[in-house]
Design a protein around this nucleic acid. Structure first.
Length: 1124
RNA sequence: AGUCUCAUAGCUCAGUUGGUUAGAGCGCUACACUGAUAAUGUAGAGGUCGGCGGUUCAAAUCCGCCUGAGACUACCA
């Protein structure tokens, strides 16, 4: 062995250094602008476009953000390695409700205070300051986790350029006549005077258990003939029964809905309040809900109280379009006030018989479902409650009363009560009772909400449904099911997109509407706005204030501090023709902001023309959480379909969610959140990333457990560090430097691991091309752990120990080096830090000797090219053979274990029976390996027909199943019962007849699988078709060799404990205390022992009794060992 | 309520187009190995593949229903 050199070529590496390495590499990337170089070094038109879904930086990032970003970074780095330029512009989502709510909380105000206690200007300023409050934290996480993203020039959605692009898009959509004004039924809080988002409704505690008055109302039928016809009866008067938990909506009733396939009965009974005999229609299944079955009569008679009779039954579809009398007619809800048909029955699939009467009271302005079914049937609607929650004028005794107690009035009486009393006295109520149910409440006022029609702007997405679906088919979804299922289903049932929000902090909708509320115009750019303002100023339609405001805005436009947000934009009043246009005060849905990102991030079309945009559009790849399906994924898709009729992205991963180790969603409330910074600090970003990716496929949920990260670090990175350390230990001693051009491996192990390596290169690439990072990373793990470390290195160790330069040793170095460098490249998308460290430190030495610029002389692994598989080096036959060797060794070791014979004790031979002559050559190839690994002298191969072992046969089910069909089971029994002789006979034939259940089948021998079984007289082990037997007899020479090996082992342990250097030489004195067997063993193996332990002298002398002693197979000897 | 996903060892997960001993890692137990050593090997215990039914010669795998977990959307008259 060479002397330890002064300088190491390859620095040492320890598992505890990983965090320091990450910090060093980060600094290196920054100092040398490696990210920028990775973009610049590629052919600019060979682009792989990635879109970053903008996070909002108004809060701390969580560990789940690391998950999505790991996948984003992984595939971008991989594509970069493959030679693509992968621009990755960062972005920040800056608008939206969560931010507004956060600011309201911070300022301790509510929405109503905005514009009163605080000016919109100040409010929006506060939002702007809040929204990027945590930007530096996000940037620091991005950096620390190794997510390469252009943070220098991010797109920010509140910037004027961004807003202008969005305006352009809104105008484009308007130009296609896809924008209209309408209203939506939204949760509305009369107490707070504001609409609520579903998000607010989902606040904990928003749903409360309340006790409400419910009523079953009786709607008297007008067209009784139709009822008689449908039931085949003849009566004069009948009622539909409909149940409601909100009697106050009954004046607004305009229709009744029945289920087409539901059975309805007509029941004769007394009205419980008026005691009149009447006929009622309700769902058959629900009769017993309202009538006591024990009072059911078989035959008609004079009805007593509670008694009832079922006259006839029919399907709901027979009862459609039947007119009824209005339940509660007033002036304000007279038919002429209704903008459509009214007071007849309609059919709705949503009607169920789970509760109520199977007939649903429809008040279209107070329920989304109601409105939908009403629209479909041309039913009109009534808005009988104003925005403060009061009944409007024209409703007699109801007018002016609050629907619910919004004001905490002293003597408040719910209109519900008066309504049901009124119905009772008129014989229009069948049942009235209290009912406890959960109902949404306003989280600010604690008052019940109502569903109320509010003005809103829509994009006619339903009109472009087929385009949307068609374009969705062009997208590769990972997993596929999200695209066809969740997203596809959503598109199939698409509703028009309500893209307006009556909030303040958002992109102002660039729409101006005239006083009639019928005409509107859309502004698509700042210059257009400017021109129109100037034009409007010359019109005499504007009053002085309006002109002043316009001028004020114009001044702002000309100055540098122009801000397109509210309130400034609301100053603008426009004139066109003879009409004055005021701006719609709403802002855009934030999802519109992010969906516009492909265009707005480039300030398209103002700073980038169409031709250039096409270079960055559509995205080749995006990745976000599955919860974005109806968020970002959707709005990207809608906008690109409208603008260019193409998808906005070609490949999309919808990654799963991050749950805690119990499978529960992480939330601050539960206190089960994991701090990403802490995780990175403790285990390193590489370990964290590796854990995430190797845990499951990207689209599966992850049950996150820090213990798993630790295990990853220990298992994978520990093994990697060990393998590298092994290499450097000897490579430094021998001053090894890789020579790339002259390498022709000859050693079986070298050829094998290189074959494995090249197979790995192909396998990883093919999985990553499928966006299956999980399979890719598992392949890498398997290769490193099972093949490179635990087989190649373990078996090759002796080759590195050799004392002199041989071709074999150089080959071993070359092979291991090649594996390590290639591995650093393959794993670089997954573990960008350590892989770069490895690459840099392994290739540094190579830079000087390299004759040209190659894949191994680059500044960083991330600038290198994905290794090209050398197909010539892939030898599947060899890979299979080594698999067999591993198998044999494992079997051999298990036999030794069973027989309690240490591996250090050499044994004479093992026996391996083979079924085909050609297998012998295979085994001979790996003979040396197996012999060394199992510490045996020879391998005896037992030829097929030696009669020494038994055979077993098994049908090949896949092939024979088709032929034998039902007889398969019986055939299996027959075949497995065959004796060794019968099997041997079958083997000589290519085909034979098999009788099963009286039928004869012609079967090929190849359709039978033959296995080796027992070897009588030997202890055998069997697995995967291989059987081995171990010869356990020990002779004197084997025992002596065993002693020598034990001694070497003890001396090596001593050297280690005494912390001798690997190269230190020693002197040994031994005293066997008269044990002649030991004396003889040591004499025989003297040279072997001295070589193994680097001893210059080995003397056998008596030592003092109190000398250090050592135990070998329960025999004690004394020794003395010196370092020279 | 609708749409979708998931359910395999104590834990985290594999299991290709259905094919006969259902695998790996962790953890546990025992033994071994050890000049890569906070590493490693071998072995053991641990599974009616969520339940029921169906298709098939053959089901963890395909189909139906149910149960449980989760996501999104909507909302209960």
């Amino acid at each position: 062995m060479n002397q330890r050199p002064e300088k190491s070529i390859y620095p040492e590496l320890n598992i505890n250094q990983l965090q320091q390495i990450e910090a060093d590499i980060l600094k290196f990337w920054k100092d040398k602008a490696i990210f920028q170089k990775s973009l610049d070094s590629k052919e600019p038109d060979n682009r792989f476009n990635f879109y970053e879904g903008p996070p909002s930086a108004n809060g701390m990032p969580g560990i789940h953000h690391v998950v999505g970003r790991t996948y984003k970074d992984l595939f971008c780095r991989y594509k970069s390695l493959q030679g693509f330029a992968v621009p990755r512009k960062g972005g920040w989502d800056t608008h939206g409700l969560p931010i507004e709510l956060q600011v309201e909380k911070k300022l301790q105000i509510t929405k109503e205070d905005i514009g009163k206690k605080i000016s919109i200007e100040d409010y929006n300023q506060a939002c702007k300051e809040t929204v990027l409050e945590f930007q530096h934290v996000w940037e620091s996480l991005t950096e620390q986790m190794g997510y390469w993203l252009d943070l220098e020039n991010p797109y920010i959605t509140y910037k004027n350029e961004y807003i202008e692009s969005v305006w352009h898009i809104v105008k484009e959509i308007a130009n296609k006549n896809l924008i209209y004004r309408g209203y939506t039924i939204q949760p509305y809080s009369p107490a707070a005077g504001t609409g609520l988002s579903t998000h607010e409704l989902n606040q904990p505690g928003a749903y409360k258990e309340v006790s409400d008055t419910t009523a079953v109302a009786c709607f008297e039928i007008l067209e009784i003939d139709k009822v008689n016809a449908a039931f085949g009866i003849s009566i004069e008067k009948a009622f539909f029964l409909a149940w409601t938990t909100t009697p106050w909506t009954l004046p607004a009733n305009t229709a009744l809905a029945l289920g087409p396939e539901i059975n309805y009965s007509i029941v004769k009974s007394l009205n419980p309040y008026t005691k009149e005999v009447q006929h009622y229609i309700l769902a058959t299944d629900l009769i017993e809900q309202w009538f006591d079955a024990k009072h059911l009569l078989e035959k008609d008679k004079n009805l007593e109280e509670k008694e009832y009779l079922v006259l006839a039954q029919t399907k709901g579809k027979q009862l459609s379009q039947i007119a009824y009398h209005q339940l509660m007619p007033f002036e304000a809800n007279a038919p002429q006030k209704i903008n459509g048909a009214c007071f007849h029955t309609i059919l709705g699939q949503f009607v169920t018989t789970t509760d109520g009467t199977g007939i649903v009271h429809i008040a279209p302005s107070f329920g989304a479902d109601d409105r939908k079914v009403a629209n479909e049937n041309g039913i009109g609607e009534l808005k009988l409650v104003d925005l403060s929650g009061k009944f409007i004028d024209g409703l007699d005794w109801l007018s002016g009363r609050y629907v619910k107690d919004y004001k905490d009035e002293q003597d408040y009486k719910a209109p519900d009560i008066d309504i049901v009393i009124s119905l009772k006295t008129q014989g229009k109520a069948f049942n009235v009772k209290k009912y406890i149910h959960s109902y949404p409440h306003c989280w600010r006022t604690d008052k019940p909400i109502i569903y109320y029609p509010l003005d809103a702007w829509f994009i006619r997405t339903s009109q472009i449904k087929s385009q949307l679906i068609n374009n969705n088919h062009k997208i590769n979804w990972y997993p596929e099911s999200t695209g066809s299922g969740r997203f596809g289903q959503w598109l199939e049932n698409i509703q028009d997109w309500n893209f307006s929000r009556s909030r303040f902090w958002g992109i102002p909708i660039p729409i101006w509407i005239d006083e009639s509320q019928e005409n509107f115009m859309t502004i698509g750019s700042i210059s257009e706005l400017k021109a129109l303002i100037e034009e409007s100023l010359s019109s005499n339609l504007l009053n002085e204030t309006e002109k002043q405001d316009n001028r004020k805005f114009l001044d702002k436009l000309h100055s540098a501090d122009i801000d397109l947000h509210k309130p400034y934009i609301d100053w603008v009043t426009l004139v066109q023709g003879d009409k004055k246009y005021k701006r719609v005060s709403d802002v855009l849905d934030v999802w519109f902001d992010s969906g516009a990102m492909p265009y707005a991030q480039h300030h398209y079309p103002f700073s980038m023309d169409d031709a250039n945009l096409q270079k960055f559009f559509p995205a080749d790849f995006i990745a976000e959480g599955v919860d974005q399906t109806r968020g970002w994924f959707y709005t990207l898709h809608v906008l690109s379909t409208i603008l260019f009729d193409t998808p906005a992205y070609k490949n999309v991963i919808s990654n799963g969610l991050l749950l805690d180790s119990q499978g529960e969603k992480m939330s601050k409330r539960k206190g089960n959140v994991v701090d990403p910074f802490k995780a990175i600090e403790t285990y390193g970003a590489d370990s964290l990333r590796w854990y995430i990716v190797s845990n499951s496929a990207p689209w599966e949920n992850i049950k996150f457990d820090l213990k798993g990260v630790e295990e990853t670090k220990r298992k994978f990175f520990g093994t990697l560090v060990n393998t590298y350390s092994f290499f450097t230990l000897y490579a430094n001693l021998d001053q090894f430097i890789y020579e790339e051009n002259e390498f022709k491996p000859t050693h079986e192990l070298d050829r094998w691991i290189l074959s494995k390596l090249n197979s790995l290169i192909l396998e990883v690439a093919s999985h990553l091309d499928d966006y299956d990072s999980f399979k890719a990373i598992r392949a890498i793990q398997n290769y490193l752990d099972r093949h490179l470390s635990n087989w190649y290195v373990r078996l090759s160790r002796r080759r590195f120990w050799k004392n002199y330069e041989t071709q074999d040793k150089i080959d071993a170095y070359q092979t291991l080096y090649l594996n390590l460098v290639t591995l650093s490249q393959i794993m670089s998308p997954f573990a960008p830090f350590l892989s770069d460290w490895l690459y840099i430190n392994l290739t540094k030495s190579h830079h000087q000797v390299a004759k040209r610029n190659t894949n191994y002389t680059l500044e960083s692994v991330h600038l290198s090219n994905y290794p090209k598989a050398n197909l010539d080096l892939i030898d599947l036959e060899l890979e299979k053979t080594v698999d067999m060797a591993q198998n044999i060794c494992s079997l051999g070791l298990s036999l030794r274990k069973k027989e309690k014979i240490k591996v250090r004790q050499p044994l004479n031979k093992i026996l391996i029976p083979i079924l085909k002559e050609e297998d012998e050559a295979l085994i001979r190839k790996i003979e040396a390996l197996v012999k060394a690994e199992l510490n045996i002298k020879t391998i005896d191969i037992v030829p097929p027909n030696s009669g020494l072992f038994q055979k077993k046969a098994k049908p090949k089910f896949k092939e024979l199943g088709k032929i034998l069909g039902k007889d398969m089971g019986k055939a299996q029994e027959i075949i497995q019962a065959w004796t060794t002789e019968e099997i041997s006979k079958i083997e000589t034939m290519s085909e034979f007849d098999l009788d099963v259940n009286g039928k004869t089948y012609r079967i090929h021998s190849a359709q039978i699988e033959i296995l080796t079984d027992d070897m009588p007289g030997f202890t055998v082990a069997r697995d995967q078709g291989i059987t081995i037997a171990l010869d356990l007899t020990l002779d004197q020479s084997l025992i002596e060799e065993g002693i020598a090996r034990e001694l070497v082992n003890r001396i090596q342990n001593f050297r280690k404990e005494a912390q001798f250097e690997v190269t230190d030489r020693i002197n040994i004195t031994l005293d066997t205390i008269g044990n002649t067997e030991f004396d003889k063993a040591i004499e025989t193996y003297r040279t072997y022992i001295m070589e193994e332990v680097l001893a210059d002298n080995l003397s056998m002398t008596a030592l003092p009794k109190d000398s250090e002693s050592i135990d070998i197979n329960d025999i004690y000897i004394n020794w003395k060992i010196f370092k020279i």
